[in-house]
Structures are given as C-alpha cells and as structure tokens.
Computed example of a mutant assay.
Amino acid sequence: MKKNSRDNPFPLRKYYGIMIVGFVLFLGIMAYYSVKFKEKREIAKQEVKLNESVSAGNSATQGKTKKTTQATTQSSTAAEQEQESRQTIQQTISYDGKTKLMWPLTGNILMPYSANATIYFESLDQYRTNHGILIEAKENALVKAVKRAEVEEIRKTPEYGKTVLMDLGNGYSALYGQVKDLAVKEGDIVEKGQVIGKVAAPTDYYTLEGTNLYFQMEKDKKSIDPSKYLK
C-alpha cells in the first residue's frame, strides 16, 4: 500500500528548513550591504564637508587677498596723491631773491649781520661773527612768516633756543630763533604774514642784549644778510 505525503512530515520540514536558511542568508546579505552603504554614505559626507571646508578656506583666502590688494592699492594711491599735492604746493613756493620780504616783526636791529668780520657780543664778552640779525622785541610779541614757505625743521639749541627753519624756495631759507608757543609744525605751508609763534625770553647768550628775535637767511646753505631782503 502506497503512503500519502501527508502521513510523512519530513519532506515539509526539509522544505521549511531550506526556506528559513534562505531567508536568514537573505537577511544577512541585506544587513551586509546596508552596513557597506552606510559606510560609503559617511565617507561621501566627509568628502563633501572636506570639499566645502577647502572651498570656504579658498574663498576666505581669496577674500583676504583681494582686500589686502585693495588696501595696498588705496594706500599707494593716497600716497601718490599726497606726493603730487605736495609737489604742486612746493612748486608754488618760490623766491627770486629780488622781491622784498616783510619783516617778521617790527623792531630795531640790536646786532647786525657780520659774517666776514667779528663784532662784540656783550653777554659773552667776546668778539665773534654773526650770521643773522637780532631784532629788538618785547617778550610774547607775535612773529610772522616773511613770505609763503614750508616749515622744514623745528629744533632747540643752547644759543638760539627754539628755532623754526623755513624753505622759501629756490635755495633760499629763513631761520627764526628765540621763539616759543609755536603755531606751526614741520611740513606746514605758511602764508605771508601768518603768525608762527611768539618771542621768547633771551637765552644766556643774549641776556645783556635784551629780548630779541634772531633772524637768519641762507642761499644754497650759505648765509646772506637778511636786512638786504627785508622792507
């Protein structure tokens, strides 16, 4: 008598076993590829972040470089404009040596110009040359620019106290000595008649001569008699 398959459970168990094993394998494969996919995705994300970071860095660097270049260009342009402006101003500072200059202040000449012969200095009790003139003045009297000029140098010496050297143009210069309360600084352009300071108390070199303004002129670094150029 032939047996029915229903009466033999083993073939069905074998079939179910194969299905379970296949399903487990399937799940394993899916899990494996899922892990690999996640790894690749994370790597891709990291690459994207890295690229963005590099791009941002490049943009920032380019931005800084551009700003630096612009700043340098603007600075150079400003310097060139200032130089051109100064050259233009300096071109208008000119002196022909013939036009008479205004007096820096009103007063008698206490000591004349004497570069080639010695004269007596009462405070020093000695004879010596004098490369400028001493103009009698009261302390705090206003000192004015003799013409349009540029303030070249401000300094202090034992003999003349605080001094202001001005470029008159074409090699001519004027030195104002024994002044105080200056209203100008180096590099300033002053106009004719502009107040540059006040007369100071005399230094120890000129105490007996009295309060005065020391005024000296040069042409190409050689002293000249100021009284011949003042009117």
Rank of each mutant, 00 (worst) to 15 (best):
residue 5 S to D: 12
residue 5 S to Y: 11
residue 7 D to M: 08
residue 7 D to A: 08
residue 8 N to G: 05
residue 8 N to A: 03
residue 10 F to P: 00
residue 12 L to W: 13
residue 12 L to G: 10
residue 13 R to F: 13
residue 14 K to H: 07
residue 16 Y to D: 11
residue 16 Y to W: 14
residue 16 Y to T: 13
residue 17 G to W: 12
residue 20 I to H: 01
residue 21 V to C: 11
residue 21 V to L: 15
residue 22 G to H: 07
residue 24 V to H: 03
residue 26 F to H: 02
residue 27 L to P: 03
residue 28 G to D: 01
residue 28 G to T: 06
residue 29 I to E: 04
residue 30 M to W: 08
residue 31 A to T: 06
residue 33 Y to L: 08
residue 36 K to H: 00
residue 38 K to E: 03
residue 39 E to Q: 13
residue 39 E to T: 10
residue 40 K to E: 04
residue 41 R to F: 09
residue 42 E to I: 13
residue 42 E to K: 15
residue 42 E to P: 05
residue 43 I to T: 09
residue 43 I to Q: 10
residue 43 I to K: 14
residue 43 I to W: 05
residue 43 I to C: 00
residue 44 A to H: 06
residue 45 K to C: 00
residue 45 K to R: 09
residue 46 Q to D: 02
residue 46 Q to G: 05
residue 46 Q to N: 12
residue 46 Q to P: 00
residue 46 Q to S: 10
residue 47 E to S: 12
residue 49 K to P: 00
residue 49 K to T: 06
residue 50 L to I: 02
residue 52 E to H: 01
residue 52 E to P: 00
residue 52 E to L: 03
residue 52 E to M: 04
residue 53 S to F: 08
residue 53 S to G: 06
residue 53 S to M: 07
residue 53 S to Q: 09
residue 54 V to I: 14
residue 56 A to C: 01
residue 56 A to W: 10
residue 57 G to F: 11
residue 58 N to S: 09
residue 59 S to C: 08
residue 61 T to I: 14
residue 61 T to L: 15
residue 62 Q to R: 11
residue 63 G to E: 15
residue 63 G to W: 07
residue 64 K to G: 02
residue 64 K to I: 14
residue 66 K to C: 05
residue 67 K to N: 11
residue 68 T to R: 10
residue 69 T to V: 05
residue 69 T to P: 02
residue 69 T to L: 12
residue 69 T to R: 09
residue 70 Q to D: 13
residue 71 A to S: 12
residue 71 A to E: 15
residue 72 T to H: 07
residue 74 Q to W: 07
residue 74 Q to D: 11
residue 74 Q to H: 09
residue 77 T to S: 14
residue 77 T to K: 12
residue 78 A to V: 06
residue 78 A to T: 08
residue 80 E to G: 04
residue 81 Q to I: 09
residue 81 Q to T: 10
residue 81 Q to W: 02
residue 82 E to P: 03
residue 82 E to N: 12
residue 84 E to K: 15
residue 85 S to L: 09
residue 85 S to V: 04
residue 85 S to M: 07
residue 86 R to L: 15
residue 86 R to I: 14
residue 88 T to E: 15
residue 89 I to C: 04
residue 90 Q to W: 02
residue 90 Q to I: 10
residue 90 Q to G: 05
residue 91 Q to E: 14
residue 92 T to N: 09
residue 93 I to P: 03
residue 94 S to T: 02
residue 95 Y to L: 04
residue 95 Y to T: 04
residue 96 D to Q: 02
residue 96 D to N: 14
residue 96 D to G: 00
residue 96 D to L: 04
residue 97 G to N: 01
residue 99 T to N: 01
residue 100 K to R: 14
residue 101 L to M: 08
residue 101 L to C: 07
residue 101 L to E: 08
residue 101 L to I: 05
residue 101 L to F: 04
residue 105 L to H: 07
residue 106 T to G: 04
residue 107 G to D: 05
residue 108 N to W: 06
residue 109 I to T: 14
residue 111 M to A: 08
residue 111 M to W: 05
residue 111 M to L: 11
